Computed example of a mutant assay.
Amino acid sequence: MPASRAARLTPVIEMAERAERDAARLLGQGQQQLDQAELKLGELQQYFSDYQQQWLTQGSQGVSGQWLMNYQRFLSQLESAIGQQQRSVDWHRNNLHKLRQQWQQRRARLEGLSKLVERYLQEARVAADKREQKLLDEFSQRLAGRPKPD
């Protein structure tokens, strides 16, 4: 009886495994997207730093008003791009947190179902052992009750 209960859970287990695998795949994709966003942010920040260094070098040699206006405009655009990229990193980080929670929930459900199936299988083994022991006991009682052949 318990073995059939375990067998009936097979489709449920398969669905839970599929859901857990899908969640793990999405978690991996989310991590890759976060890594890419952080890499791009780092590149923008490095570019900003390099550009500031260029200002120090160029500024010490004297610059025109036009160059200074272009520099400030570009620096402003770069700061804006860094801000946008930081928001993108924050969004990807929050998304990754949600994806991790979903994966953990699906993993916990799968583990719970697996434990239930294992319990059902263990109950089936115990029941089968009891039936076997009962049959052996009955058989040995019958043998004990028979007259001994001479």
Rank of each mutant, 00 (worst) to 15 (best):
Q32C: 05
L44Y: 14
G28D: 07
P11W: 11
M15S: 15
E17P: 06
Q86N: 12
Q122E: 12
R146V: 08
R73C: 00
Q72D: 02
Q61I: 04
A81E: 15
S76F: 00
L136T: 08
L75K: 09
L116S: 05
N70T: 06
M1W: 05
L39M: 06
L96T: 01
S140W: 14
K40T: 11
L110N: 08
L75G: 04
R8I: 11
S49N: 12
D90M: 01
F74T: 07
Q101E: 05
R25C: 09
A108W: 00
V63M: 13
E20P: 02
D90E: 06
E14W: 08
Q101R: 04
L75I: 04
Q122V: 02
L41D: 02
T57C: 06
R106G: 01
R100C: 00
W91V: 02
S140C: 03
R8V: 09
L75H: 10
Q32L: 05
D50Y: 02
R21A: 14
K98F: 01
K115C: 02
G28R: 09
A81W: 06
A124S: 10
K134M: 08
A127R: 09
P11T: 12
Q101G: 01
E123Q: 08
A37W: 05
E14L: 12
R25D: 11
G59D: 03
G145T: 02
I13L: 15
K115T: 06
L39H: 11
A19L: 13
I82H: 10
L136E: 12
R131S: 11
S88T: 13
Q61P: 01
E79I: 04
